[in-house]
Design a protein around this nucleic acid. Structure first.
Lengths: 344, 344
DNA sequence: CGATATTCTAGAACCGTTTTCATATGGGAG
DNA sequence: CTCCCATATGAAAACGGTTCTAGAATATCG
């Protein structure tokens, strides 16, 4: 890591380190000629100051941390993209860690961020930390950071802080209602991880919509606690093969959607004639061009960007009251929700 | 960023800073009792050393950089995942930057990595740097890094260094050949960015396979320079609508595949009866469960992990001759390549 | 022309670690 | 009992910047 340092530049330019520092940062008094001379030397030696030394000296780094559960999921990589773009633009350095939805790794990630003395953190927690003990451990690490943080996507109820969230309940509600209004009466739901608040909120939105429209949410039509695409595939296939089945589904997440689509295909069923659906989040390939599937769309990149902006703004106004941005997903009906009378 | 430092711990424990340092790093002589005492104090104060100060003092950081074109693309987020996992496991900190395939941003990213004094870099260049002048600028920044780097996915010919690449030519060749062996004679290709070497290699693999099997690669069946899904959609749709069209396609990338599929759907055509295909890289949703489309599969996460391992190994053996890992994509035929006689 | 403000510069202290060096202690070998 | 080695510790010097302080040079003004 040995490279030319500020001392070398100062010596070569025949000035003091302080002067070089002033030239670099463009503040304080430096004469035109001195500045030019120093700049020439810096240029010649490809000099670049060390963020390490600078941060140490200034007692403030320009690194910001981002913790997400996984990078391989289009939703999270969308968030990442949004965050990354804003940070690049604003001259911050992004330090990334993934938790794999694992609490211990989540703790490790928080510790790593502290170790690196990040100026701020954007945090998609591994879970909602509803367990008292785990929450305390997490909160302690978060506090130790010593800097501001923004919680993204997964709310942690007991935490009073900036956050950017989605309105999962109303999203699920409106999706379900759309199916009802299309004419469906027998509506199933494919819901994800019930450990996660967002999972329960989405299920609750479905339930409420059914109830308020006087429809029964039949237990056997509710596939909950679905982890991943494969499980969604199996459970959906089983349900679709049974003698009575829903005419439509609200599918609460991306991966389940793919599982569902595979199941439909393998059973030779078509959408929406044999089973209609509305999904949560667009499918990956849909982003640019759009398959004609109906879904609750979130501008994922924007979510990440908002979180980044919130954090940066917080740097300037540490005392501002905590902000809660709650984005309502937009329902886009593209046809897959339509109702077809059953042929007798 | 004010927090308890090594001095505070030393004072509180009634020892010198040097002793605390020795306890932290577990090297040098420290008596059992002293160590226990110091550890207790560190615990009590939630002390965590500063990576900043440590790196500065050691003249070696534990941060490694990763530059990728974009995070939102499943291929790159796969690489990212592989890299990230290895780095987490080995105790390195990951600094991420994206270039958006833009040379200027690529330069900025390289400079940022140097600024942060990363110990090493994993680099997916924004392009192949075939232009002499641009290459020189890039190489200079790379050299200024002062540390080892691994070039990933996109070869830079003039660079003698560790790299992890794919054998695009042979992949494309075998995919095309599979179509030929299935019985196809009229085979089209949907190829991506011809500015990129990997794009040209894939086209070349297709060409060569056609040629060696005595088939003509007709110009009008070669859709090249396709940027993104939308363009793939339009051009494919146009070709598929024309009176004569290929019976099969080799589709050289992910996004084009989606464009193709959309075009097929919108024209009411089915796979593989109306047009067969083999694609390069699995489709996003395919990763876990697998739609029955044939493709050249790369274990993307593994590519990233390999690059990370190569870099880490290089830390220990700076003098080892440059390694070139070239992964041959595995051809998986799942049915979408099959040939159906045209009905007269 | 002297007083005073403004511009410019260098020296020194500091940020939080690691590492070298010197010193002190205790135990075993001779 | 002396000498030497292994163990244990703290003081001090880096690392590469920033910033404070103070002094010198120059400009401004009465």
């Amino acid at each position: 890591m040995k490279s030319v340092n500020i001392q070398d530049i100062a010596r070569e330019a025949g000035v003091g380190k302080a002067t070089v520092s002033r030239v670099i940062n463009g503040k304080g008094y430096v004469s035109r000629e001195t500045a030019a001379k120093v700049k020439a030397v810096m240029e010649r030696y490809h000099y670049q100051p060390s963020a390490l030394a600078r941060s140490l000296s200034r007692q403030e780094s320009d690194a910001i941390g981002l913790i997400i559960p996984e990078a391989n999921n289009p939703f999270f990589s969308g968030l990442l993209t949004g965050v990354s773009e804003v940070m690049d633009k604003c001259g911050y350095t992004l330090i990334l860690r993934t938790s794999g939805n694992d609490i211990q790794r989540d703790f490790k990630a928080l510790e790593a961020m502290r170790y690196q003395r990040v100026k701020g953190l954007i945090y998609v927690p591994a879970c909602n930390y509803e367990d008292e003990r785990e929450f305390a451990q997490m909160a302690s690490r978060l506090a130790d950071l010593g800097g501001p943080y923004v919680v993204l996507d997964r709310p942690v109820t007991k935490l009073e802080c900036d956050c950017v969230l989605s309105d999962n309940f109303s999203g699920a509600y409106s999706a379900t209602e759309a199916l009802i209004q299309a004419g469906h009466r027998e509506i199933g739901v494919i819901a994800g991880n019930m450990q996660l608040l967002i999972g329960r909120e989405r299920l609750e939105g479905y339930r409420k919509a059914m109830e308020q429209n006087g429809l029964a949410a039949r237990e056997e039509y509710m596939l909950t606690g679905i982890f991943g695409q494969q499980e969604a595939y199996r459970r959906t296939k089983a349900l679709l093969s049974s003698p009575t089945r829903p005419t439509a589904f609200f599918i609460a997440n991306n991966r389940s959607e793919i599982g569902f689509l595979n199941a439909m295909r393998d059973l030779g069923l078509s959408i929406p004639q044999d089973a209609a659906f509305v999904g949560f989040d667009e499918l990956p390939g849909q982003l640019v061009f759009g398959l004609p599937y109906s879904s609750l769309d979130r501008e994922v990149t924007l979510l990440g960007a908002k979180a980044a902006q919130l954090l940066i703004r917080r740097f300037d106004e540490p005392a501002r009251s905590p902000q809660r941005l709650i984005i309502v997903p937009r329902l886009s009906l593209r046809g897959s929700e339509r109702y077809f009378e059953k042929e007798a």
